[in-house]
């Protein structure tokens, strides 16, 4: 048989019932066997859950922050899929040096008065030079330099970054026949 308060027990304990309703339930409780029995069980469960809620869960892994910010940086205007993203993921600062050295060498070759014939601004680059500038690492280096400049942030080589690289290397090894 229904007393009309069956769905109110938890809200009552949570202080979420309107005052009049809460007062009515408080008056009803001692005389209702069903509500009294349910009330005891609910009080106990709330305590048990409160104890669980205050117990600490394991902390999020420190890599989460890096992954979220990386994905957001990818979503913030730069391409973020496929091989390109994979390359972006692997790029480390030390890789910038040879890439930038390559660019510098290219610039020197292109503009040096000693290299005949001197190309005009509109002249197409020789095939090998065009190929070199399309090298993803070179373009990537320029992009990353821009971003670093923009964000004014610190070093890329955190232990987590290195961990990611080594995990990728392992995956790569496993993937090989």
């Amino acid at each position: 048989m229904s007393c009309g308060f069956e769905e109110d027990g938890v809200a009552y304990l949570d202080g979420e019932l309107p005052r009049e309703r809460a007062e009515a339930l408080a008056a009803h409780l001692p005389g209702c066997v069903l509500c009294t029995a349910q009330h005891a069980g609910l009080v106990r469960l709330r305590e048990q859950v409160a104890a669980l809620a205050s117990a600490p869960l394991p902390l999020p892994s420190p890599g989460l922050r890096a992954r979220v910010l990386a994905e957001v940086a990818g979503a913030n205007g730069s391409p973020g899929t496929g091989l390109w993203a994979w390359l972006r993921g692997r790029l480390q600062p030390w890789m910038l040096a040879p890439a930038l050295a390559g660019l510098a060498a290219l610039a020197w070759l292109a503009w040096s008065p000693a290299s005949p014939p001197s190309p005009s601004l509109d002249a197409p680059l020789p095939a090998w030079a065009a190929e070199a500038t399309e090298e993803p690492a070179v373009l990537e280096a320029a992009l990353v330099m821009d971003e670093l400049d923009e964000l004014r942030l610190g070093a890329l080589e955190t232990p987590e970054d290195l961990e990611v690289i080594s995990a990728l290397d392992e995956l790569e090894q496993e993937g090989r026949p």
């Binding site: 890599g63 922050r65 890096a66 992954r67 979220v68 910010l69 990386a70 994905e71 940086a73 990818g74 979503a75 973020g80 899929t81 993203a85 972006r88 993921g89 790029l91 480390q92 670093l148 964000l151 942030l153 610190g154 070093a155 890329l156 955190t158 970054d161 961990e163 990611v164 995990a167 990728l168």
Partner: peptide
């Protein structure tokens, strides 16, 4: 270990 579009990101 790495998001689909993941890339190493410096720590702020």
């Amino acid at each position: 270990t790495l998001a689909p579009s993941g890339r190493n990101f410096p720590r702020a």
